[in-house]
């Protein structure tokens, strides 16, 4: 039998206890912070919620002069810009990730990979400036007139490209957001695609599958959880992004069907107006906007979790 110094054993036991307590404390801290944020948001938003009731989320009017506040426009702007961003960034990011892991010649692999990571490191204010001074004028001069002329008069979908070409607006904000979330989506997806066992891919090729078939039938099913994760990471960033959006969205509290019209998002409204918010109801309404963003993000995560569970069940039954 090994002879163990009892003092050494006692020290070991103490370290073990300290270690357990420290990790437990860190874990509990997360709950406390989350709870604290939720409580202070609800407390701050309470006056506005009590005053406007459910009408807060269904009214478009946002008038500090008459103390009337409705959150419909910022909610609409937040959702629509994020949808535009995801509609562009998901397929493009998917393509970048697939190219990097499956098709890229080794010589290009590093430069493109590094470029994607650098794109993620660009501060959002830079995207805002670029969007305002470079992208918006280009859209205003070349893209939007074309959209208005060729699609604007088609009944039905024409409504989304209607009105004068401002340059800035919902569409521009969506495009800037797409570029901002693209590297996150591409990098996450690339990392999951890299975890697919080479043997599994070879089995696909060995059956006579083409590269596309191996990607679609082997790589993607194997990494679907990571793909959803990457999309959610991007969506989370798109929903909460403030600075770049504030630059290019036009900051108008109104809901319009046209994507070319200026709008606002929850986060850009808060950022723009918090310093000048006079009166308790105004401040409280802005905090209520924050609470709404909190709830939207929570819902997105909940939906993502539900989707993942469904995917796993499907995987077991296909």
């Amino acid at each position: 039998m090994a002879i163990i110094d009892p003092r050494h054993a006692a020290t070991q036991l103490i370290y073990e206890r300290v270690f357990r307590t420290a990790t437990l404390g860190a874990a509990i801290l997360v709950l406390l912070i989350l709870g604290g944020v939720a409580i202070s948001l609800v407390r701050g938003a309470w006056p506005a919620m009590a005053h406007f009731g459910f009408g807060f989320v269904t009214h478009e009017v946002w008038n500090p002069v008459t103390d009337e506040f409705g959150a419909l426009a910022p909610i609409y702007g937040t959702v629509v810009t994020s949808v535009i961003a995801m509609a562009i960034a998901v397929p493009v990011g998917f393509g970048i990730a697939l190219f990097l892991t499956e098709l890229c010649p080794p010589l290009l692999k590093r430069p493109i990979g590094v470029a994607v990571e650098l794109l993620a490191a660009v501060p959002s204010i830079i995207f805002g400036i670029w969007g305002l001074f470079v992208l918006a004028p280009i859209l205003q001069k070349h893209v939007q007139p074309w959209l208005i002329k060729h699609i604007g008069h088609i009944p039905g979908i024409g409504g989304i490209f209607h009105g004068p070409p401002f340059g800035i607006g919902i569409l521009t904000a969506g495009l800037v957001l797409a570029i901002m979330v693209l590297p996150f989506i591409a990098a996450t997806m690339r990392d999951v695609f890299d975890t697919v066992p080479p043997m599994l891919k070879e089995s696909g090729y060995g059956l006579g599958a083409t590269t596309w078939e191996v990607i679609w039938n082997v790589v993607v099913p194997h990494s679907r959880v990571g793909i959803v994760g990457g999309i959610m990471l991007g969506l989370g960033r798109a929903l909460g992004e403030t600075m770049a959006v504030t630059f290019v969205i036009g900051n108008a509290h109104r809901v319009s069907a046209s994507l070319l019209a200026p709008g606002t998002t929850i986060s850009s409204s808060i950022a723009n107006e918090f310093t000048e918010a006079v009166g308790d109801l105004y401040t409280s309404s802005l905090i209520a906007l924050g609470l709404l963003l909190f709830l939207i993000t929570f819902t997105v995560i909940a939906i993502a979790q539900a989707m993942l569970r469904r995917l796993e069940r499907q995987a077991a039954n296909t």
Binding site: P197, M199, L200, E202, S203, G204, G206, N217, V218, P221, H222, A315, T318
Partner: peptide, 9 residues
């Protein structure tokens, strides 16, 4: 192959 590689289906 050496190791069985069923697809996750």
């Amino acid at each position: 192959f050496q190791k069985p590689t069923p697809f996750p289906q």
